[in-house]
Simulated scan of single mutants.
Amino acid sequence: MFPEITRDDVFRLETERLWLRWPRAADADEIRQHVGDPDVALMTASIPHPYAPHDADAFIASVREENGAGGGLHLVITPKNRPNEPIGLVSLHGADRRGAATFGFWLGKPYWGQGYTTEAARALIDLAFGITSLDRIVSSARPDNRSSLHVHEKLGFHRTGRGMRPAPARGGEMEVELFELKRGEAHTLFGARRPRFFSP
């Protein structure tokens, strides 16, 4: 799905306030601290709670492998003035033959309400529609997760319904609002321009 330029761990995206980069082994403690908060983990389908010490290491290894294979792109969110401190993550993964990929994200609780998720997601979505053949991006959020619903709306996603989705970390399924974003409909940060991306 993603081309060669994103498949090297020196790849990064720049926004006004943030650097988005590959997760590293050294990020494990920060990731564990943020997603170990039940207010973060329990709003997702895939983050276990409690979050065991080895969970962050396994997660980082898994997403680095997917990034390297080009099957997805998982980028930690870091403030520009603290590029070694991840505060969240945005990702696209699971592209299918119909040209759709799945969008996901989480943000550490101390950073809620400051627009970081929307800023990071716009850069990733701009990149995806600019350098891949994806036609649409799908996503979901719990109906009671007002912050996530608002992020989807700000990004230009359209609600397509409500349904049940597998939630392995929650022990079964969870009810979610379903969303879709088609190429050309995103409320992007950069307008017609592609985001700046860096890779030596």
Results as ranks from 00 to 15, higher is better:
Thr132Tyr: 03
Ala101Lys: 03
Pro3Leu: 05
Gly191Tyr: 04
Asp39Ala: 12
Phe59Gly: 01
His74Trp: 14
Pro50Trp: 15
Trp22Asp: 01
Ala28Tyr: 06
Thr117Lys: 08
Arg122Ala: 08
Trp22Phe: 07
Ile5Ala: 07
Asn67Phe: 09
Gly163Gln: 09
Met43Ala: 11
Thr117Asp: 07
Ile125Met: 07
Asp144Glu: 14
Glu177His: 08
Arg32Ile: 00
Arg146Cys: 11
Ala141Thr: 15
Val10Arg: 13
Ala120Glu: 00
His152Asn: 06
Arg194Phe: 01
Leu42Gly: 01
Thr160Ile: 14
Asp8Met: 03
Ala141Glu: 13
Glu16Ile: 08
Val151Gln: 05
Val176Asp: 04
Arg170Tyr: 13
Asp39Lys: 02
Gly72Lys: 09
Leu73Ile: 05
Phe2Ser: 05
Ile87Asp: 01
Arg122Glu: 08
Gln114Tyr: 10
Glu66Gln: 13
Arg142Val: 06
Pro110Glu: 11
Arg98Ser: 12
Asp57Glu: 14
Thr15Gly: 07
Pro110Val: 09
Pro168Ile: 14
Met174Val: 12
Asp27Arg: 05
His34Asn: 03
Ser46His: 10
Leu127Gly: 01
Ala123Trp: 00
Ala167Val: 05
Asp37Ser: 10
Ser199Leu: 10
His34Gly: 00
Leu18Gln: 10
Glu4Gln: 11
Asp29Pro: 00
Ser147Gln: 13
Glu177Pro: 00
His150Asp: 15
Arg24Lys: 09
Phe59Gln: 01
Leu73Cys: 09
Phe190Ser: 05
Leu149Ala: 01
Thr160Met: 13
Thr132Asp: 04
Asp27Phe: 09
Pro50Lys: 08
Ala128Leu: 02
Glu30Asn: 11
Glu4Met: 06
Thr188Ser: 15
Thr160Cys: 13
Phe129Asp: 00
Ile125Val: 10
Ala169Ile: 12
Arg162Cys: 08
Leu73Tyr: 14
Thr102Pro: 02
Gly36Met: 04
Thr78Ser: 10
Trp112Glu: 06
Arg21Ala: 09
Glu175His: 09
Glu66His: 11
Ser133Arg: 15
Gly191Ala: 12
Phe129Val: 02
Asp126Gly: 15
Glu30Gly: 05
Ala100Tyr: 08
Ala120Trp: 04
Ala95Thr: 07
Gly104Phe: 15
Lys154Thr: 02
Pro195Arg: 06
Ala25Trp: 13
Ser46Glu: 14
Pro38Asn: 01
Met1Ser: 10
Pro50Ser: 10
Gly99Asp: 07
Val35Gln: 08
Arg12Phe: 13
Asp8Ile: 05
Met43Leu: 12
Ala56Leu: 04
Gly130Phe: 07
Phe197Asn: 03
Glu177Ser: 10
Arg146Asp: 14
Glu85Ser: 13
Ile87Gly: 03
Trp106Ile: 07
Gly191Phe: 04
Gly71Trp: 02
Phe197Asp: 00
Arg122Cys: 11
Gly184Trp: 05
Asn145Leu: 13
Glu119Pro: 04
Gly156Ser: 04
Asn145His: 15
Ala141Met: 08
Pro168Gly: 13
Leu89Glu: 14
Glu173Trp: 12
Val176Tyr: 04
Pro3Asp: 08
Leu42Ser: 00
Glu119Tyr: 10
Thr188Gly: 15
Phe157Ser: 00
Arg170Val: 12
Val176Asn: 05
Glu175Ser: 09
Phe197Pro: 00
Arg17Asp: 15
Ala123Gly: 02
His54Ser: 14
Glu175Gln: 12
Val90Pro: 01
Ala95Lys: 03
Ala192Asp: 14
Ala169Cys: 11
Gly108Phe: 11
Pro48Ala: 02
Leu124Gln: 11
Arg7Glu: 13
Pro23Thr: 03
Asp27Gly: 06
Ala120Ser: 07
